[in-house]
Design a binder for these strands. Structure first.
Lengths: 220, 220
DNA sequence: CTCGAATAGTACCGTACGGTACGGTTCTGT
DNA sequence: ACAGAACCGTACCGTACGGTACTATTCGAG
């Protein structure tokens, strides 16, 4: 076998097919995502689909993995940040998070995985969380740790803190977008939302200038 | 027609059938929820199903409406509350919210509506939000207004404030439960979560004892 | 008791899907 | 140039679902 055929990667041809399947899923939902339609739209044969991905589940998993390979994350370069820079980073993260969660492909894949979650043997949901969310979470954790190192915020459990930030940013937007409320998907308001959420986050975890007489929050 | 046959209500027989359909949905997900299986499990005929509910969509909508009719809400009796009582009410609300969202029937119905949300003509998602969430939201709004009247918290926009409370309580739990993460559905931790969320909520919106020097949060 | 409406149970129909098989074509390594 | 693999397009199969039609049975009103 040739050297560029690694087991976990996809050939350019398969890459195109997966991209086409994603477009199909976004356009019409799971009902439209049949093996025959994917094959016809992508100008490939069903036999190739089954040889490449095993079965329909494998195709869906490959679509998730393929999409997850696109998102990139924040990396801590170790450089010090002043408070304005750190706040801007947080706002940027919040804005990106809202934009990613509200994206067409993300919503379609989440709907797909949630629809399959009732069957016990389906691991699509777990796959989506691990491959998609994990990267975002790690980037956010690195950002929070950097903020703590520069003494802009203080916390003990980075995971707890990140989850609070996530809740302040996303609230119930994700579920409502998943349910089909298109009115709230306008990214016009994402800016204000991100600003407000970061304000609230600093109110909870920000270090005061003189002493930390701010509200301390603890897990009971 | 007799007096107890109102147009929007269901007969006891239909009530039982809907209950049976809900059990079926919870047990096996949408794949199992076929008209034939519902009819067989409920000991009724498919013809009756179609006469009562029109088509499959109507049956699903009736299931949502039937389930929504069960949830009851907080009602403001106008009596004054001290701070401890108000905090207990908030914690109770948060705990109930987590328990409702994590319930089997709620998760199954949300998965169902989200799965159908890709089709444009399906209004199940909107129906679920209006009939299910609306009641909870109104109860929470009444509770928050009561807390403001008793000067335990302060805010300007009750909807904004409620959404923040929701985000602090739920975070990403709902979506992850929808995706099938059963580990986080243990209500054992719901108590701690509710306490922590209410602590954070008071840190953001609580009125200080002497003067309100607490963090003011506003929409930019 | 009789009649008619409502219902249970079943059979049926058209359609669509997942998965497999096969002939014809293109690509690739030697 | 040639052989073999990969691949496209299509046909095919078994199954299952949504919805309808029909018969037998139940049940309530007069």
């Amino acid at each position: 076998m040739s050297d560029d055929q690694r087991a976990k990667e996809f050939t350019p041809r398969q890459h195109d097919v997966l991209e086409c399947a994603l477009s199909l899923l976004v356009a019409g939902g799971e009902r439209v995502l049949t093996t025959a339609r994917v094959a016809r739209t992508a100008n490939c044969s069903k036999e190739s689909l089954y040889r490449w991905f095993g079965d329909r589940e494998g195709l869906l998993a490959a679509m998730i993995a393929h999409q997850a390979s696109k998102v990139r994350t924040f990396s801590d370069n170790g450089a010090p940040m002043d408070r304005v820079q750190f706040r801007a980073q947080l706002v940027g993260f919040a804005h990106d998070l809202l934009q990613v969660l509200g994206g067409d492909v993300s919503l379609a894949l989440n709907r797909l995985a949630i629809g399959q979650a009732s069957r016990e043997e389906s691991r699509l949901g777990q796959l989506l969380v691990e491959q998609g969310r994990r990267r975002i979470d790690e980037g956010a954790a690195a950002l929070l740790e950097a903020g703590r190192r520069c003494q802009h915020i203080e916390f003990t459990d980075v995971d707890e803190t990140y989850r609070t930030l996530y809740g302040l940013v996303v609230r119930d937007l994700h579920v409502r977008m998943l349910l089909g409320e298109d009115e709230i998907r306008k990214p016009k308001n994402f800016g204000e939302m991100a600003e407000r959420a970061v304000d609230q986050f600093f109110a909870l975890y920000g270090v005061q200038e003189k002493k930390r007489m701010g509200p301390r929050v603890r897990a009971v």
